[in-house]
């Protein structure tokens, strides 16, 4: 039986990298007595996969991992058991049964959304209104936003207009912040900081690595024309 688990990562846990988060959950499954299935062979491992790796330094309230279980308790009890096994900064938010033919989260992720807030001392001298206008001019007006994206081996030209689904200015605790919904997955993966880097360039500013705190809200499947829906919506609550 397939199960999708939704969790959040906050506070200092943002410094825990993706591989260590995986190891953390493997041990958490054992502590919470989740009847997770193991692969066969001499060194059996838990059948578990993550949706979209979160970079070091980023917090999130919408992370997903899929597991295979032999048997399971209800959603409510499983969430409680897992939360008993968590450290501060990790919380399990949901635990839902997937259809048997469901594809892994990793293979269907298409998009994720983020809020980027200013780290103290990195604010810029632009009002909310000025920033809203600038985002409008940078993002909404043009037909194409072509940028050069550096990859490990090569560089390629991509069109941000196609890959950024939403970009707006918010007000968070009296300060401007940015909301971004961007293409995510194995192909066309866009980091929100990349968009802001180009936006800053447009403003004639240089983006520092530490300007923003990045927080992920959720991870989605679907597409821009038919709509995106949260990975959490694909499972059903176990009673």
């Amino acid at each position: 039986m397939k199960v999708r688990i939704k969790f959040s990562k906050s506070g200092n846990m943002k410094f825990i990298g993706h591989l260590d988060t995986m190891r953390y959950f493997q041990k958490a499954m054992r502590r919470a007595d989740i009847d997770i299935a193991y692969s066969t062979g001499f060194s059996p491992h838990q059948i578990m996969s993550f949706a979209a790796p979160l970079g070091v330094g980023i917090t999130s309230e919408g992370e997903y991992l899929d597991i295979e279980v032999n048997s399971t308790d209800s959603t409510e009890k499983s969430v409680a058991a897992l939360n008993d096994a968590m450290v501060k900064g990790f919380s399990v938010l949901d635990y839902r049964r997937l259809p048997d033919n469901a594809k892994t989260a990793m293979s269907i992720v298409t998009c994720a959304d983020y809020t980027l807030t200013y780290r103290e001392g990195y604010e810029i001298d632009r009002s909310l209104e000025e920033l809203r206008e600038a985002v409008h001019a940078f993002y909404e007006v043009p037909e194409k936003i072509e940028i050069v994206k550096q990859t490990k081996k090569s560089e390629k030209i991509i069109d941000l207009k196609q890959l950024v689904y939403d970009f707006k200015v918010l007000e968070v605790e009296g300060k401007p912040a940015f909301y971004l919904k961007v293409s995510t997955g194995s192909t066309d993966n866009i980091k929100p900081e990349l968009v802001l880097e180009h936006f800053y360039k447009y403003l004639g500013l240089d983006l520092n690595d530490f300007t923003f705190r990045t927080h992920r809200h959720d991870v989605y499947t679907g597409n821009a024309t038919e709509g995106f829906y949260s990975l959490n919506d694909m499972g059903e609550i176990i009673r």
Binding site: G11, F15, V56, G57
Partner: peptide
């Protein structure tokens, strides 16, 4: 959770920040 003694700038620059945050 204690607030880290080191700033984000330091922790995100050095190798293996998890060595220094406890928790």
């Amino acid at each position: 959770m204690s607030r880290p003694a080191l700033s984000d700038e330091i922790l995100l620059t050095i190798d293996q920040p998890a060595r220094y945050i406890g928790g």
